[in-house]
Design a protein around this nucleic acid. Structure first.
Lengths: 229, 229
DNA sequence: CACGGACCGCGTGTCGACAATCGACTTCTT
DNA sequence: AAGAAGTCGATTGTCGACACGCGGTCCGTG
């Protein structure tokens, strides 16, 4: 699950240190999938993409293969690749696994007495509150994902983090398709604050319940009026 | 997690229907890792392997990349790939995730009232008992893995199955490195029988305990006298 | 002798061309 | 006209050659 460098952190180095072409291509296609330019079922033809980007097929091919392992693309030997069609069941499975993994993370964090207020969660939480207050949905969503990622990171479990990262990608895919609208930003932020508090208080049962509930409601948001393509 | 065709089922078709070269190459390297020809840390040089197999670098390259996503190989851009070095922590993480996933599967199976005696577990279980009786360790191990795989399959959750499959590969890697010796074959078979019975009886708590215990003891077998490379 | 920079070999990254496969369409046969 | 065989276009699979990054070596310099 060694996952290519963090593309969401465009540090100064990236300008110097040449990231392999396949990574950049994968990032381009991934974004196209998320922003809707590539709808589910759309064919990904190596030659076409290569010509569009004015490069050879090799890096395109590798990029597509990456996306396939990420679950964003379906590939069939000798036939071709298409943007994955997500069924309602797929979405349910993704969220079921997320719930399982995040609950496990919470358990680990509490058992090992990690200081959640100091080690990161605090930042994401207050960022969510600020974003909610100013009605900045984009930032809110970003902070939301950061919150959950940091929660997983606090469990200090590389394999867990790797698997969760894959799930997060697939969740983003589902969310992108449905253009999910958050009901009440302030409530979302408050939920996260409550989770932090419960963990900090060492209340395992309450933490698990809150996390489950939060993830289930997220799933519900995506699944409402879902129609299989 | 779309995983290349089932390589363990060499049907008649495989002779006709050309499986892409990369798959066969991946299978060869994977086996070499499991049987110890390629020890942890051993470099995987595309050109060398390609020449050994008398093919070009392209399929070798893709095969290595597959193994990397399976967690059997470490790849670093512009530097190269090596057989993954497994730390004690890696092994612990793999087994921790297996425990989490298999417990989840058990929960699902019981909640949904799947008929475990009819739908597959019975076959693997009795196969284990026979293998144990005749002292056939290889068959025992094979039936063991089949048992767990079928347990996961009964949960009817594709994503779960995909993630579990990855974990199983990594577990096999660890087991291969330690040449694990099973203490008492009959006891192992009996444990699985007990799990089937508990599930069939719908006894959730007992089923979870048995599964946890079984996986933990498996982990212990691998971890005994583990020395990080 | 320590240190910094140019050089060089190794291996991966990328390229353009050719081969194999698949599915659909066409055509031949009865 | 129906069915089977053959053909064709589109796309992936494989190939060999060249480009580039990386790390170690060797040399010059203070």
């Amino acid at each position: 699950m060694t996952h290519a460098g963090d593309r969401s952190r465009p540090s100064l180095l990236d300008a110097i240190h040449h990231e392999p072409l396949r990574e950049r291509v994968a990032a381009v296609i991934r974004e196209a999938i998320f922003d809707g330019s590539l709808h589910p079922g759309a064919p990904l033809v190596e030659k076409t993409i290569a010509e569009d980007l004015q490069i050879s097929r090799a890096p395109v091919r590798e990029a597509i293969r990456m996306l396939a392992t990420e679950g964003l693309v379906d590939s069939v030997s000798y036939k071709g690749s298409t943007v994955r069609r997500l069924s309602e069941r797929d979405v349910q499975e993704v969220y079921a696994m997320r719930r399982l993994l995040e609950r496990y993370a919470v358990r680990q964090v509490i058992e090992r007495g990690v200081d959640v207020s100091r080690d990161g969660l605090e930042g994401a939480t207050s960022a969510m509150e600020e974003a909610a207050a100013s009605g900045d949905i984009a930032t809110l969503n970003e902070a939301d994902e950061r919150f959950h990622r940091q929660l997983i990171e606090l469990a200090d479990h590389e394999l867990l983090l790797g698997m969760w990262t894959l799930l997060a990608l697939r969740a983003r895919h589902a969310i992108a398709l449905r253009n999910v609208q958050i009901g009440d930003p302030a409530a979302v932020a408050a939920n996260h604050r409550a989770i932090v508090d419960a963990i900090a208080a060492g209340d395992l049962e309450r933490s698990l319940d809150l996390v489950s509930e939060h993830i289930d409601s997220g799933a519900q948001l995506v699944l409402d009026d879902w129609q299989d393509d």
